[in-house]
Amino acid sequence: MTKEMFVQISDFKLFAKLIGKNNGKPTIVMDAGYGDYSKTWDLIISAISMLTEVLIYDRAGLGKSEKSSNPRTSSVMVKELNELLKRAKLKGPYILVGHSFGGLNMRLYASEYPNEVCGLILVDSTPEEYREKFLPTMSIEFQEAYNKQFVYESNYDEFIESLKQVKESRRKLNVPLIVLSAGKKAHYPKESQELWNEMQKEFLRISSNSEFKVAENSAHYIQNDEPEVVIEVIKSLIEKF
Rank of each mutant, 00 (worst) to 15 (best):
K17G: 04
Y113K: 15
K17P: 04
E83Q: 15
L104S: 06
Y34T: 06
D58N: 14
R59P: 00
S46E: 09
E128W: 00
S75M: 01
L85K: 07
V76Y: 14
A47C: 00
L62F: 08
N105G: 08
T27G: 03
A145P: 01
P127Q: 11
R131S: 05
D124K: 03
L43H: 12
P136W: 14
Q143S: 08
K133M: 13
N82R: 15
S139K: 04
K148R: 15
T126A: 09
R59H: 14
A16F: 11
S75F: 02
L122M: 02
G102D: 11
K79L: 05
P114N: 10
G24S: 11
S68H: 00
Y57A: 11
I28E: 01
V29Y: 02
D58P: 12
D31W: 09
F101D: 07
S111Y: 12
S154E: 10
Y94A: 03
G98R: 05
Y37W: 15
K89Q: 07
S139T: 10
L62A: 05
K64R: 15
E128T: 14
R131I: 12
E66Q: 14
I95P: 01
A32M: 05
F159G: 04
V29L: 01
Y156H: 03
G92I: 08
D124Q: 06
S111H: 12
L55C: 15
E153C: 01
D124G: 08
L14A: 10
V78N: 03
L43C: 04
I56K: 13
E112S: 15
